[in-house]
Simulated scan of single mutants.
Amino acid sequence: MATTAFCNDIWFTTNDSFDLIGTTAPDIGNDIGHSLNTMSIVVYSLAFVLGVLGNGVVIWVTGFKIKKTVNTVWFLNLAVADFLFTAFLPLSVTYTASDFHWPFGNFMCKLNTTISFLNMFASVYILVVISVDRCASVVWPVWAQNHRNVRKASYVSLCVWVVALILSAPYFIFRDVGPSYHNKDIINCFNNYALSGDEDTYHETHQAMIITRFLLGFVVPFTVIVSCYAVIIHRLRRNHTLANQSSRPFKIIAAIIINFFLCWAPFHIMGLIEMANHMPEYSSEILDDITIIGLPIATSLAFLNSCLNPLLYVFMGQDFKDKVHKSILIVLESAFQEEETHKVSRPVRTKRVQI
């Protein structure tokens, strides 16, 4: 169980709740703890390499190489959120590899965790916007064709980033650095919720942060997403022509949403378990073991989400045998295309032969 001690007039928690930059395991066997840390380092490193390269390509293609559409605006912002997060992963790798010693100072401790949750909130609310946009395009196609444009999509994306920044701000406020409870020579980056130096305030703030994150970062967004796709599926079943036109974009977006759900659901579930384990009435040895082992696994899954989307764009953009013969640019352009009803036909270019 994470150890809490009253130290220097603040409630200082080592290896504190979900910080998205690693969790130590002081109360389990050294072999298990070492294995978990090794797994985390491998996953973080993999997510960094694949995430920076993959999302970098998506940003390059959607931002500079293909015609801007409403869809490309959504996917560009999603890629920016993932790229920003994965670019900071070397800090988490270093933190985990150095036995959770944070050498980067208080500001970077705050910034690193804030970027992590900024990515989470921005990603899930961009998925909400994509789902609502897709629903409007299917249910009200004429209205959508007359009102959907790149400028409005850019304004909506800006609003999403503002909301995500507001929801992430508390992590910048509460993040702090200090000596580890187990080893004073090791500096931890931890959540310091005790603004008034009172234990009750610490636990209340801790619970409020986790519950708010669970509701606004998971339950509410996915309720909207599932509702939108229920309407879409109902409408597509009644209109086979529309279903054929929307097949590829629908499958890609659905895969991205399922990927986000599978990667982030364990994180939020473990957050609730960890919160319960901090309550005297629910605390137990079983929850201790679940928390200590489950936290790094759930966090690693959440990290992987940011590098998987570019792979989905490529491998679901068109048939695999076509991909091996076409450039990444064409593959991604195919993945991000609008429905056929929104596309403007292009004149056929004939090859000119010089005589």
Rank of each mutant, 00 (worst) to 15 (best):
L76R: 06
F85S: 02
H34N: 14
I130K: 02
N149L: 02
I41G: 04
T13S: 11
G22F: 06
T113K: 10
T62E: 03
N146P: 03
W143M: 11
V128K: 07
F75T: 12
M39P: 02
H34I: 02
D16M: 08
T86I: 06
P90V: 02
F48V: 04
V58K: 00
T114M: 15
T62I: 03
W143Y: 15
K110V: 00
H34L: 12
V139A: 06
T86H: 03
G54N: 04
T114C: 10
L84Q: 03
F48G: 06
D99H: 14
V73M: 00
P103G: 04
L111K: 03
I115D: 02
D27K: 14
H101L: 00
S137C: 13
K110A: 05
W60H: 11
A25D: 09
F104Q: 06
L20H: 08
Y125V: 02
R134H: 05
F100G: 10
F121I: 01
N30Q: 13
S92N: 09
T23D: 09
T114P: 05
M120I: 12
F121G: 11
T23C: 02
I126S: 09
A87W: 05
L127W: 03
L76S: 01
G51C: 05
F107C: 00
S116V: 00
S35F: 08
V49Y: 07
W143T: 11
N37A: 15
T24P: 05
A81C: 12
V93D: 05
V93S: 04
F88L: 08
A87C: 10
R148F: 15
L127M: 14
L36S: 04
S98L: 13
G51M: 10
T69Q: 10
L91V: 09
N55Q: 13
W143N: 11
